[in-house]
Design a protein around this nucleic acid. Sequence first.
DNA 1: ACTAAAATTGAAAACGATTTCCGTTTCTAT
DNA 2: ATAGAAACGGAAATCGTTTTCAATTTTAGT
Lengths: 161, 161
Amino acid sequence: MHIITRNHKHLADRLVGRRKQFTKGCRIVLEALKNTQGTPSAQDIALQLKNSLSNQAPGLTTVYRSLELLARLGIVQVVTFRDGERRYELISPGEHFHHLICEQCGKTTRISACIIDGLAQSISTEYSFMVKSHVLELYGLCKQCNDSTNNAIPNLLVEVS
Amino acid sequence: MHIITRNHKHLADRLVGRRKQFTKGCRIVLEALKNTQGTPSAQDIALQLKNSLSNQAPGLTTVYRSLELLARLGIVQVVTFRDGERRYELISPGEHFHHLICEQCGKTTRISACIIDGLAQSISTEYSFMVKSHVLELYGLCKQCNDSTNNAIPNLLVEVS
DNA sequence: ACTAAAATTGAAAACGATTTCCGTTTCTAT
DNA sequence: ATAGAAACGGAAATCGTTTTCAATTTTAGT
Ligand SMILES: [Mn+2]
Ligand SMILES: [Mn+2]
Ligand SMILES: [Zn+2]
Ligand SMILES: [Zn+2]
């Protein structure tokens, strides 16, 4: 906890609004996100903490509140896939990711490829809209699922919509 | 056998799949979508129908069921913005849209500009992932909101994150 | 260290969108 | 007309998330 406090001390200065402090709960949630790969939901995190920390684990409410703060601080990205559940992943401030989501096995893959550069410019001129952020998620089949599906039903159509 | 069939009717429904017919409820909901611009939620639609058709209006449950069928038929696109509420809009089969969402006034604009063409190909080769569909939504400020918030800076800035 | 004020915590309750249940109504085919 | 199948709709359930609020912990002033 000392390490994390030191590493993110600069963030503590920016705390404004409801949540004012970078608390132990936040530190624990941040730690959990660091140690987890994937894109867990708040309940995933709370459960994992309950399993690893038992009675020391922060409650679900605190997990939600911590995630909200971390997101506001810019070190957590909130992502929502088709099931509507909010999921969270660690980022560096200013960074963002997109995802490949397998519709069959549910596996998600972070990708940093971003296509916004030209688009934002053309949107700006065509619609007079200032793009400040964007969401891009790609749905389809991962290699394994695509292979196994093609074996069962050979030559399935390749549709890009 | 009648008793058993009746008691487990809901299970059988789930196995076979739900909606089978294009019913009056669907027709009414479809009509409502045609006459509405914007991207209404199921509750928006139900309320509007209640206002216009009074006791003839389909109930909220039927609105949900109709929207589900219309989406499955490919003539309704389901979109979810940051508030997580599902919204619906009419499309031609195979068609899809993206949106500009003003973070200040909430105005949304459909755009048909699509960036998937090159991306799906490069994703396929780099990640062996078959892209079948995608979600792209752009958040920012519409012209009016941008002008009123930064009247000091008349030029439209393009911030891409 | 003491103490009062401020902030955080978490269990329970509230919330809101969506889904499920199930009795009633409508449709369809004979 | 009749029976079986499907749809309807209101109530209840579900589920992720937020709010409430009393208790606890932390902070800041002395
Ligand atoms: Mn991007
Ligand atoms: Mn597209
Ligand atoms: Zn897969
Ligand atoms: Zn606006």
